[in-house]
Amino acid sequence: MRREKEKKSRLFKWAAICFAVVFSFFLADFLMGEPRVPERAVGSIPFDHALHGDSIGLDCAACHTGSRASANAFMPSKADCMDCHRLPLTENPGIETLDSVLAKADDRPWSHKRHLPDHVVFHHGVHAAAGVACADCHGRGYMQNRYGAELFNMQSCLKCHRGETFKEKGFKPAATYCAACHR
């Protein structure tokens, strides 16, 4: 009997050691790794992506004016909103409060710090032209007005450039040498 107990305790001891080693590796990896994009609040003007995107059928580039042509996708300016909101659009009562908030808003209502470091080059236009949809990288969160929390680390970009992810979309394998995306 004592031999089984002793053998079981030795087994338990080894399991504990292996767990401690593996756990400390992943803990350090988690702590020192690249964090997710921080969550962002909706901002002063309540905006609903699902309403504008799905029901009205606006293309992302309509408000994010740089997402098809330039490196930076930019946020809409007040003038971009007023293109459509210059007239009362619907009957439901919410529209008055929206129009008053819009009137009071300053002309660049949304602004945030660029998440990618300065030495990283990311060009929205090239990826849009290559057929990459916005949801592929930004996920579906923005449809439920949850912004941020995407995982933009180098390994996810490299896997896509090598064609290891989104195989079904048949993207052309892209450049993976350092100076393609770093400055």
């Binding site: 490196a71 080059v121 060009h123 236009g125 032209a129 290559a130 057929g131 100076a179 393609a180 400055r183």
Partner: peptide, 18 residues
């Protein structure tokens, strides 16, 4: 002037597929 070459290459590739 790597940054000029990068910008030009990205601009070209954006308009290329259009």
């Amino acid at each position: 002037c790597l940054h000029r070459l990068q910008n030009d290459r990205l601009k070209f590739k954006t308009s290329l597929t259009v």
